[in-house]
């Protein structure tokens, strides 16, 4: 019974989303593209096996019938790599955004609810995270933890939990002033009750938007880190394909860049744009202003 309101709220979100028409045209395109990428990623993992790892043609073939996007220097089909890369990139984006979103908002609720030194401590760390130059820190952390997907997710989480935390705290602070919370508290409602019944349902929509934005941020961060050579080169994410192609000596000189550089670059841009369109629509949907990344 206790969780009824929370469940109701969660149920309400898909309800709002059920009507696809609430999305703008761009939102729809974005949604379709993201769905497509998720699907191809899954298909590639399930059915295409090692196609993204095993050479299947000559080195650096131009796009043709067998290899629609050509091959790389090892003779591996680029399309297969792109499809598999979608899985990796979305994985990184999704997990880091979820972790940062949930972790951050939990800390935010705690800070807002407890106040006092807890608040000061958490917000202090938040401030440090906001001030510290993110990319340089990411470079140092990336080199520190070593390149693996898990570590990259960790680095992105460390650097991005502060925004959801701030949003959650602000919301909880304003909710605390409201009559029903004060009333509930005077009846002796504990933190758990308040959190489950009031705070979480209250912040869920904004946090959701924030998480979607974090997904795109994480995908960009992963690509940036791998571009600098600090990613996980065994993971075959889009950033890795890009990094390898750009570091191929003489790439400026030949025509290889037209398919080898441009295809991961294009899908990366499209995915990031799609997600941002979705986030924008969701923002409007939940009447939530500000907190853009």
């Amino acid at each position: 019974m206790k969780y009824a309101k929370l469940l109701k709220c969660i149920r309400k979100i898909p309800g709002k989303l059920r009507n696809f028409n609430i999305f703008s045209a761009y939102g729809k395109i974005g949604f379709v593209f993201v769905l497509l990428m998720v699907l191809t990623g899954i298909i590639s993992v399930l059915f295409m096996g090692e196609a993204h790892k095993i050479p299947s043609g000559a080195s650096l073939e131009a796009p043709g019938l067998i290899h629609p996007l050509g091959t790389d220097d090892l003779g591996i089909d680029i399309l297969a790599q792109i499809l598999h890369g979608a899985f990796v990139s979305i994985q990184v984006g999704f997990f880091s955004a979820m972790l940062a979103g949930i972790g951050g908002s939990t800390l935010g609720i705690l800070a807002g609810y407890c106040g006092g030194w807890t608040d000061k401590l958490i917000m202090g760390i938040c401030d440090v995270m906001m001030v510290i130059p993110q990319l340089p820190l990411m470079i140092v952390l990336g080199a520190f933890f070593g390149p693996s997907l898990r570590n990259i997710i960790l680095v992105i989480v460390i650097l991005s939990w502060s925004r959801p935390a701030r949003i959650a705290r602000a919301r909880v602070l304003s909710m605390r002033q409201e009559g029903y919370i004060i009333a509930a508290k005077s009846y002796g409602a504990g933190f758990r009750h308040l959190a489950v019944k009031h705070f979480i349902p209250g912040i869920l929509p904004i946090i959701l938007v924030s998480i979607i934005r974090l997904i795109s941020k994480a995908i960009r961060a992963e690509a940036g880190l791998t571009f600098l050579g600090l990613g996980d080169p065994t993971s075959k994410s889009w950033g890795v394909i890009l990094n390898r192609s750009i570091n191929f000596s003489g790439i400026y000189y030949t025509d290889y860049w037209k398919w080898w550089v441009m295809s991961p670059l294009t899908v990366l841009i499209l995915l990031v744009l799609s997600i941002s369109f979705i986030a924008r629509d969701m923002e409007l949907l939940f009447h939530n202003k500000g907190d853009k990344l």
Binding site: S216, R220, A223, G224, F227, L242, I246, V261, L265, L268, I269, V272, L273, S276
Partner: peptide, 11 residues
Amino acid sequence: SEIPSFLLGIV
């Protein structure tokens, strides 16, 4: 504004 600037730079 959404396109990562280093990708734009590569182009």
